[in-house]
């Protein structure tokens, strides 16, 4: 039986990027359904998505990136999808590379496949401070879980049914579901694998981590959450 695959794209004010992203996905992964979670955008994101005949859920207020993702996961669970691929609406994630994640999750029978910029040098022009941050969380994951995840901050992921079920049930889905969620899943016995992928830099608009205060706040929050999640799961029985 053919697998049901859903591509989830959370979008907030992405009118300049979303059309290109949708066209690329339709061309390169034509067997997958697409779902855009419009996080109460104030621009024409919703109109553009609907014009492209893509399913669009519009939140009634801005719930931010993570909650938009979880809305999509709940949709996937209710509609019995076998796999979910999370992609960004800014054009950073390449549709052809998403296919690699899907093939890998089927081949390796793992629970999560992460599209990684750093597992192999893929020519991603990463800013210096971001690279340092990623390295720090890579070390943290290795310290807590004894597994090397070169890019734990990557949101480009493919999830299987078990993970879709698990994520949609989390009451306190983290505001930034990055290294903290990777640590939690590894500690609970889920299997995660990385696949080297190419990524682009966003062409238009600003990232949710732009500026000076936001990245600092992100780093503190992420670091604290990782430590607390480790302590929270310490000594707990594994799922599998």
């Amino acid at each position: 039986m053919k697998d049901k695959v859903l591509i989830i794209i959370p979008a907030y004010n992405e009118e300049k990027n979303i059309e290109k992203v949708l066209k690329e996905i339709k061309k390169d992964i034509n067997y997958a359904d697409i779902l855009v979670i419009n996080d109460c955008s104030t621009d024409n994101t919703r109109e553009i998505v609907e014009r492209n005949n893509v399913k669009c859920i519009t939140n009634i207020f801005n719930m931010r990136y993570a909650m938009a993702i979880q809305t999509g996961l709940k949709y996937a669970r209710d509609n019995k999808y076998d796999y979910v691929i999370q992609m960004d609406a800014d054009g950073q994630h390449i549709a052809k590379e998403a296919e690699k994640l899907y093939h890998e999750i089927k081949k390796s029978k793992v629970d999560i496949v992460i599209g990684s910029r750093y597992v192999k040098e893929m020519g991603y022009p990463c800013p210096f401070f971001r690279r340092i941050g990623t390295k720090m969380f890579e070390l943290l994951v290795r310290l807590f879980c004894h597994q090397k995840i070169a890019d734990p901050l990557s949101g480009f992921q493919c999830l299987n049914k078990k993970v879709i079920e698990k994520y949609s049930k989390i009451g306190e889905y983290p505001e930034y579901p990055d290294a903290n969620l990777v640590i939690e899943m590894l500690l609970q016995g889920y299997k995660i694998k990385e696949v080297p992928v190419k990524m682009r830099l966003r062409e238009n608009g600003t990232s949710m981590h732009s500026g000076i205060i936001k990245p600092i706040k992100y780093m503190i929050e992420q670091l604290y959450t990782c430590i607390v999640i480790f302590l929270k799961n310490f000594g707990k029985r594994r799922v599998k």
Binding site: Y224, I229, L231
Partner: peptide
């Protein structure tokens, strides 16, 4: 505080300021 977070009585985010 850590026990409350572990038992999910307190969210991780809220626990930050108390810790």
């Amino acid at each position: 505080i850590l026990h409350s977070v572990r038992k999910e009585h307190l969210s991780i985010k809220t626990s930050f300021v108390w810790i």
